[in-house]
Design a protein around this nucleic acid. Structure first.
Lengths: 198, 198
DNA sequence: ACCTGAACACCGTTCAAGT
DNA sequence: ACCTGAACACCGTTCAAGT
């Protein structure tokens, strides 16, 4: 008569629970205890389906990065939007360059750049540049919601402007608090594409 | 007659000890206990000089990122070389976009791009693109030494090549294990600069 | 084979007590 | 004011014991 799970545990269900916890409570909220509580199971059960917490995080990221066959600009935007929807994702993608989600991004970028006619070293250099840019931009986006992010940027700009009378710093600080993240991200992609074709 | 420190504790000495521990043992080696052991002091003493571990990490990164007034290519290379000398630095720079070391990189990039004639939104877009690229490339470099990194990339390329018969993937995998990191990093910077001026 | 939950070996941080 | 070190409230991971 004790309340018990009816469905068996599985890697899928564990990853699903992890994603939900990450979305609701952020990186700090994902503990093995939170996962086992949500799944109403014992601590050690997780380790029958996932090697450790790092693998669980990588699996959660992989679950959430979905890339179609779209051209390069849309592909970059898809990564951007995934991070927008899951604020913990940026930090996770930056954490391990060998995780499945990152390899998938590499593959997508490589495929699209190849279609643009790049091969050999030029393809490798351009691919690395674009992937590093996308992941760098990803890691920089980590405020939980747009309002908090705006507050943060404004506070940062104020602090920054106050710390240095240099007019260049002043101008940069102003831009920091006013820019549109998504537009600026795309502007960066376009700089890249110009640099590649030019 | 107990052996005691003769010199007083200070933020400087604490940060110095943290940098040395990070260099010797990597991110995982930096615990408050390791720091207090090395300084032969009590656990709580640290908190009189540093707010918490995050601030200590940010201070260590700031201590190690030294940028001169060199033009943009050299400035980017200086960041690259700092990460080469301190493998933990890449992950740390990616961790918090508001930390002093990152703000200093922003300022340097902004200044140099301004000298190239950029202003307003163009300056902001180009600056963000370049900083994100540099930090993304930084985060991706995290193997302790060159030999281990080479091993890692070769293993990754093999795994990758084995996972997908697509010729694009095969080509990318080959490039992955053969390229020169430093040269590829500079190639990325040059793609950027072409994209900006083009 | 899969699951349980107590136990282990760690953490960062706090705080009463000392100097 | 600065420092000490025990105590606190957590972690991820393991493992004997159950089904």
């Amino acid at each position: 008569m004790t309340p018990r799970r009816t469905d068996a545990l599985s890697r899928e269900r564990i990853v699903e629970a992890a994603v939900r916890i990450l979305d609701e409570q952020g990186e700090g909220g994902l503990t093995l205890r939170a996962v086992t509580d949500r799944l109403a199971t014992g601590r050690g059960a997780i380790y029958h389906h996932v090697a450790n917490k790092d693998e669980l995080l990588a699996a959660a990221a992989d679950d959430v990065v979905r890339l179609g066959d779209a051209p390069i600009r849309e592909l970059a935007l898809a990564v951007f939007d995934a991070i927008d929807a899951h604020p913990w994702l940026g930090a996770q993608l930056a954490r391990d360059p060998a995780q499945p989600a990152v390899l998938r991004i590499w593959k997508g970028v490589g495929t699209q750049l190849h279609r643009l006619g790049l091969t050999g070293t030029a393809l490798g250099d351009a691919g690395a540049a674009l992937v590093n840019y996308v992941l760098g931009a990803a890691a920089a986006r980590r405020a939980p919601d747009e309002a908090a992010r705006k507050d943060y940027l404004e506070a940062l700009a104020a602090q920054w402007a106050g710390s240095d009378p240099d007019p260049v710093v002043q101008e940069a600080a102003a831009l920091l608090s006013e820019h549109d993240d998504r537009a600026q991200f795309l502007a960066g992609v376009d700089i890249f594409l110009r640099g590649i074709s030019g």
